[in-house]
Amino acid sequence: MKSTDSSKMTALRIALMAVLTATVVVFTLMVRVPTPIKGYISLCDVVITFSAFLFGPWIAAIAGGLGTGIADLIGGYAQWAPLSFVIHGAQGLLIAVIARSGLASGVPGDANILKLILAGVVGMVVMAGGYYIAGGVLYGFEAALVEIPLNLLQSGVGVVLGIAVSRAVLKAYPPVRSLSL
């Protein structure tokens, strides 16, 4: 086994971050579930939750932050990019940290379901709260209130699907464990 080889880690870590970031971008821009109020909510939170459960805090933070940031740039919401970077980055980081806490081995997604849900809920709060504060600063706290339920819905769907998908992928593609650093 060469997983202790730190030189290989560099390339693998870069590859992991890049591919997961790109996946977040695609899920943010392509996979949209229709909702009555805002039109669409995106599924970026699914991939962020997935990255956190399988690859830990740092990879999830980069994939979540950079992925949603790039999606904002491509989608024509450049002003949001730095804020998304921080908010979704923190979301990915915290989900992984909470899920992983107290776990002796394995990936964070191996934790029991209650802990995964708890981690997900914290992620929801960080995401919705973060956008409330950012929105408040950008265009006033009054208007920013309106977005809270939508953001909770979007990140909530992200948590549910994220948990389901993480478990499905762990079973369908066992080598995923050897990718996690």
Partner: peptide
Amino acid sequence: ALVLTLAFRFV
């Protein structure tokens, strides 16, 4: 910077 470029490559 490489992560950024590669992300754009993979989208």
